[in-house]
Amino acid sequence: MSILPPSRRLWWKEPVHGIEMIWIIIALLWCLVLFLWMPYWHLYGKQNLSNESYKTPPEVFESKANAMAKAHTVRTDAKSNIPVVHPPAGSDVYMLGRLWQWWPILELEKNKSYRLHISSLDWQHGFSLQPTNINLQILPGYETVVTITPDQSGEFAIVCNEYCGVGHHTMLGKIFVK
Results as ranks from 00 to 15, higher is better:
Met1Arg: 11
Arg9Leu: 09
Arg9Tyr: 01
Leu10Gly: 01
Trp11Asp: 13
Trp11Gln: 14
Trp12Asp: 07
Trp12Lys: 10
Lys13Gly: 11
Pro15Arg: 06
Val16Pro: 02
Gly18Thr: 04
Gly18Glu: 05
Ile22Ser: 10
Ile26Val: 14
Leu29His: 02
Trp30His: 02
Trp30Gly: 02
Leu34Val: 05
Leu34Thr: 01
Trp37Met: 03
Met38Val: 10
Pro39Leu: 04
His42Ser: 13
Leu43Lys: 11
Tyr44Ser: 05
Tyr44Val: 10
Gly45Asp: 03
Lys46Val: 03
Gln47Glu: 13
Asn48Gly: 09
Leu49Ala: 14
Asn51Val: 06
Asn51Asp: 08
Ser53Met: 14
Lys55Met: 04
Pro57Thr: 09
Glu59Val: 07
Lys64Arg: 14
Asn66Glu: 04
Thr73Pro: 03
Thr73Arg: 14
Val74Glu: 14
Thr76Gly: 01
Asp77Cys: 09
Ala78Glu: 14
Ser80Leu: 05
Asn81Ser: 09
Ile82Gln: 05
Ile82Lys: 06
Ile82His: 10
Val84Arg: 02
Val84Glu: 03
His86Met: 04
Pro88Cys: 08
Asp92Gln: 07
Met95Tyr: 06
Arg98Val: 05
Trp100Asp: 10
Ile105Val: 11
Leu106Thr: 00
Glu109Leu: 07
Arg115Asn: 15
Leu116Trp: 11
Ser119His: 02
Ser119Met: 05
Leu121Val: 03
Asp122Pro: 04
Trp123Ser: 09
Gln124His: 13
Gln124Leu: 07
Gly126Met: 12
Phe127Thr: 02
Phe127Asn: 00
Ser128Cys: 03
Leu129Phe: 05
Ile138Thr: 01
Gly141Pro: 15
Tyr142Asp: 05
Tyr142Met: 08
Glu143Gln: 15
Thr144Arg: 09
Val145Ile: 14
Val146Glu: 07
Pro150Phe: 06
Asp151Ile: 06
Asp151Asn: 13
Gln152Glu: 12
Ser153Trp: 03
Gly154Trp: 03
Glu155Met: 09
Ala157Asn: 11
Ile158Trp: 00
Val159His: 10
Cys160Lys: 00
Cys160His: 00
Asn161Lys: 09
Tyr163Arg: 09
Tyr163Ser: 08
Cys164Arg: 13
Gly173Leu: 00
